[in-house]
């Protein structure tokens, strides 16, 4: 099914992936620079760039290096994670409505972290990654079992996933309220990269690199996964092994992203669609470009969140939901046309 999607989406002829990648990179650079210059104390672009390449120990320099740059870097890592996880999960389930969020995986990670934080408040930083993996894997497995039973169509499966997400979100809310930590609610429900520090970047980075590398190395096999199972088998593919590998990568990418930024939605759903629409179905290209488009989208969303409610900040998860919900409707619409 994913293969047929790819075909119809490139109706107007695919654009050269390298050109798309170059444009994405330029835009990403612009978004990062804009993110570094914009804020309560506005820096001129030239000054910001200067400080970026030669920090001078001034307050501005600290602002760039300790506050705004880590934030941009975190957005890059989280965006990459969610985007690649989205590509893989849509390929694995052959469901264009699948994503770490719509299948409840982000919320699963979020809930388990919150529960662990209640019982072991001393968990900090990297320690939150493991509960996140456990939560993501549990929900991922449940959704996989639902999908594998084969009785649900794409839309019902997505609806089931979103219902799981809503229930888990309600549980998170209940737990946080019960423990007087209501101020964290938005973070654990919608996700945010506010107050990012380098330490968070270092937590997620290894997983981003491992996950992205694994996805790239296995990319060729995913192309075959996108075909139906029988064709895959006849091509000598061990679908189960490739599927299992994809599932592990999804859990690592989505889980580590939630551990540092909360469950940010819609990036994992939208990015694969945007990229596939531009360059077609080749998985290597889609994975690489998603790894650029995800950060681009998340950095832009963060920038929008910081500018539109200035001087207050809209958590980036709310911005992605505002952009993502209508886009989700459009994906549904194209789904129906097919």
């Amino acid at each position: 099914m994913a293969a047929s999607i790819a075909k119809s989406e490139t109706r107007n002829g695919p654009v050269n992936p390298i050109a798309v990648g170059a444009v994405f990179l330029v835009l990403l650079a612009i978004a990062i620079v804009a993110g570094i210059t914009f804020g309560v104390s506005n820096l001129p672009v030239s000054r910001a760039l200067n400080l970026l390449f030669s920090p001078d120990g001034s307050a501005d320099s600290a602002l760039v290096w300790d506050v705004r740059l880590p934030r941009a870097m975190l957005a890059i890592a989280v965006g990459t994670n969610l985007a690649i996880a989205g590509v893989l999960i849509q390929t694995l389930t052959r469901n264009p409505l699948a994503s770490p969020q719509t299948f409840g995986i982000n919320a699963g990670a979020s809930l388990v972290i919150v529960v662990c934080l209640i019982f072991w408040p001393e968990i900090r930083g990297a320690g939150m990654v493991w509960p996140a993996f456990a939560g993501a894997a549990t929900i991922g497995f449940a959704m996989w079992a639902l999908a594998a039973s084969g009785t649900m169509n794409d839309m019902k499966l997505a609806l089931a996933g979103i219902s799981i997400q809503l229930v888990l979100a309600a549980l998170v809310q209940a737990i946080l309220i019960a423990n007087n930590t209501a101020q964290d609610i938005v973070y654990w429900l919608a996700g945010s990269i506010n107050g990012a520090q380098w330490s968070k970047v270092w937590i997620i980075l290894p997983f981003t690199l491992t996950g992205a590398a694994a996805a790239l190395i296995a990319g060729r096999h995913f192309d075959i996964l996108a075909l139906d199972e029988t064709t895959g088998l006849s091509l000598g593919q061990n679908a189960k092994r490739v599927g299992g590998l994809a599932a592990i990568i999804i859990v690592i990418l989505a889980g580590s992203a939630v551990a540092v930024s909360g469950p940010i939605g819609f990036i994992g759903l939208l990015v694969p669609h945007i990229v596939r629409r531009l360059v077609g179905g080749d998985h290597m290209a889609v994975i690489i470009l998603s790894a650029i488009c995800g950060p681009l989208l998340l950095n832009s969303a963060d920038l929008i969140g910081r500018m539109t409610a200035f001087p207050a900040e809209t958590p980036v998860g709310i911005v992605t939901a505002l952009i993502g919900a209508p886009a989700f409707l459009m994906i549904l619409w194209r789904q129906r046309v097919r």
């Binding site: 958590p315 939901a321 505002l322 993502g324 919900a325």
Partner: peptide, 11 residues
């Protein structure tokens, strides 16, 4: 639609 309304309210 509900998710959009919710995000708008959060905004």
């Amino acid at each position: 639609i509900g998710l959009f309304g919710q995000a708008l309210m959060q905004y």
